[in-house]
Write a protein that binds this DNA or RNA. Structure first.
Lengths: 142, 142
DNA sequence: CTTAATGCAAAATCTTTGCATGAAC
DNA sequence: GTTCATGCAAAGATTTTGCATTAAG
């Protein structure tokens, strides 16, 4: 399902465009959204290429990845190798970076104790921000 | 996008079947997989109903939810209000429950400091277990 | 009876692939 | 020139919705 371990990287107009669009985007963006943004901005890039580029960025750690409520992937440019987690408002989508040092350390511990190698983690926090009226409960957990 | 706040719950053959199938399932299962399992077990339930029932269970906190590598949802029955996190092998799928008390406490802290209400969290850990040969790197993070 | 729940078929999404063309190096 | 990258069209897959029917309470 995944490509080769070998990974060529040619610099193309499209990849630059996707990178810039990601940088310009406010919070997390979906691939289809980016595709639309790019088209609107005059630097049209094929949807397929958007997907392939995002996957490339993901594999090389240049973006943070989250999931929206329905299973879609959301991407966010990751400045300078940084690794962050966000608290996203379920009402308005506003995202707030949080300090997850505790979690990072905990993950390392788990890795050592479990004997599993290359342990990666995904952490998603969502809630209702001060401005948004709560509508209903939800108790997702994984 | 979500339904009403009001939530009737009628006990039907289908819901019982989905619940039992979930209980019987080993680890995390997808909706389509459950649908197939049910059909194979003689207690056929419409795919639509499987989806609706799983969403109901999710909203009432009766299942844990994760995502597979491609954005699909995976469900796992949650025994007695318990809340667990798992470390899943990317090779063979074996899952290992881990103690995430640290994270739980951290989430509470974040909630208090941020002012967000009803903060829910999803935490996914994946790695390569001792038996599985590593194949390639991956650095997802959200 | 009343109203929620079911399930089929169909739609809407999101994501990946096949394959010929075009661009990097 | 070679080989990777692009992009269209098409296929796959997952999840949601419309609507008539069934069944729980």
């Amino acid at each position: 399902m995944y490509g080769t371990s070998r990974r060529e990287t040619r610099s193309t107009r499209q990849r630059a465009a996707v990178r810039e669009a990601l940088r310009g985007a406010d919070g997390f963006v979906s691939a289809p959204a980016l595709h639309t943004l790019l088209a609107a901005g005059g630097a049209a890039v094929g949807l397929t290429t958007v997907y392939r580029t995002l996957r490339l960025f993901e594999e090389t750690g240049r973006v943070d990845v989250t999931r929206d409520g329905s299973g879609g992937r959301l991407y966010r440019w990751r400045p300078a190798g940084e690794h962050r987690h966000y608290l996203v408002c379920r009402g308005c989508g506003a995202s707030l970076a949080v300090d997850a040092e505790v979690v990072e350390r905990w993950v390392t511990e788990v890795m050592e104790e479990s004997g599993y190698r290359a342990v990666a983690h995904t952490l998603e926090l969502s809630g209702w921000c001060a401005e948004c009226p709560e509508e209903h409960g939800s108790g997702t957990a994984g």
